[in-house]
Structure formats: C-alpha cells, structure tokens
Design a protein around this nucleic acid. Structure first.
Length: 223
DNA sequence: AACCGGATCGTCT
DNA sequence: GACGATCCGGTTG
C-alpha cells in the first residue's frame, strides 16, 4: 500500500477549529524548499491562537495591516517580526474571516541538517536547531518575505506532509508561553512529551513595572 | 541549571 | 512612546 506519510495535507485539514488543528499538527512534517536547498521539520511543539476571542492573539483587536493574513483563507503562512530581530511563523486555520492560527514553536530537523546548521551557527546539538519559534524560522530560512505564502499549493516553498502523528498518550498541553492575563488561563500549548527539541518551559516572567515613573533613564541609547 | 540583561525595531496607542 | 507569541551570552550557585 502507498506510504501515507508522504501525502501532503490538504486545505481541509486547516479548515477546522484551531484547538483541533493545533494538536493534530504534532508529528506532521513541514517541508521548506528554497534556492539553497530543502529543510524538512517534524513539528514537536505548537500553540493555538483563537482569533478575536483570544486576548493573546494578534487578531484580538481586529484586522490591521500586520495580521491581515490571519483573516484570510486557511492553510496560509502568517509570519511576523518581533523583538526587533526575530521572525515567528504560524499556519492559518479556520474559515476565511476567522483569524485563527497555530504558532510553530519547535521541531526536529529530519533532512537538510547541514543547511539548517549554516543558518543556526550557535546551535550545539541538532535538537537545538529548531528549539523555539524564532530558531525554527531561522533553521528553515523563513522571514517576512514568506508572509501569506500558501502551504497547500504546489509545495513551493511550503508543503505539510502527513508524517507520523505521535501516540496520543504522549501529547501534553499547558498554558501558552509569554501570554499573560485572560489568555493565559487556556491550555493551548501542545507538545510531544519527552521530545528533546521541545523548548524548555519558562514560567510566566512578571514584567517589573516602573513604579514611580520619575527620572527614567534616557530613552536615546547613546552608547 | 537557573537567572539576568542587552540587542533592536515594527506595530499599535 | 511603550512593549513584545525571543534569543544569546555572561554570571552565579
């Protein structure tokens, strides 16, 4: 019988509720083909962001130029720039207009390890190549230029294969990383238990508020 | 292993 | 003008 694991996922896969799609993406294989070569990645950690109902979502406050892709059809790639230097990548889910997406947080590089290492020179071990959302985009060569790309098209530059979903007993859920407030209560982070490429859990870091806002240091960083 | 701060800029108020 | 869906290197234990 034909190998099911190499079958690309169709658009219908992504046209479901984000909380259903996100855990179902674990173990799937993202293929990124660029002129330099191809890197394939087995997804091991994801987070769901539920559109307008979700205080943690970029779409929470409605449509803006940045989050426009989230409001588009499912199966497309939403890339955003953060912390002045990093890119993160999502797969849009649900019907057009619903603005939900799954953040790809970590994966295991299956193929193209040499190319991934060239892009991630600080990685010591292979499991660190895509351990974290910004590391993941670095490893596969994704930046702003890929915002809006179709992951259910001809496979250039993206394709998502069925892969081998993990034993359901190994799927763990927990609160999302870096999301505070009402959105932190929902367990919309999903990962494969025990996989070495899953980014270490960091407890919510309470950002220290400047109490007494007098004489704050210079905002112009001179040196 | 855990904690801390710097880097660096687009996006929205 | 403030603050990130973060990463990295240095320091401390």
């Amino acid at each position: 019988m034909p190998e099911q694991t190499d079958q690309p996922l169709g658009r219908a896969f992504f046209d479901r509720h984000v909380a259903e799609v996100a855990p179902d993406l674990l173990g799937r294989v993202l293929v990124c083909t660029l002129p330099e070569g191809t890197v394939t990645l087995r997804l091991t950690e994801v987070e769901a962001y539920n559109g307008r109902d979700d205080p943690g979502s970029h779409a929470y406050r409605g449509r803006t130029p940045r989050n426009e892709v989230m409001f588009g059809p499912p199966g497309h790639v939403y890339v955003y720039f953060t912390y002045g230097m990093h890119f993160c990548m999502n797969l849009v889910t649900g019907r057009e207009g619903h603005s939900s997406a799954v953040l790809l947080r970590a994966g295991e590089v299956l193929d193209g390890v040499d190319l991934a290492r060239q892009r991630r020179t600080t990685a010591r071990k292979d499991h660190e190549l895509a351990q974290g959302p910004a590391r993941l985009t670095m490893a596969i060569g994704v930046d702003r230029a890929f915002n809006g790309a179709d992951a259910c098209g001809d496979g250039i530059p993206f394709r998502v294969l069925a892969g081998t979903p993990p034993d359901p007993a190994l799927i763990r859920t927990g609160p999302r990383t870096g999301v505070s407030g009402a959105g932190a209560t929902t367990s919309w982070r999903f990962w494969i238990d025990g996989d070495p490429s899953v980014s270490p859990y960091r407890a919510h870091v309470p950002k220290r508020k400047p109490s007494g806002a007098s004489g704050n240091a210079a905002t112009h960083a001179g040196s």
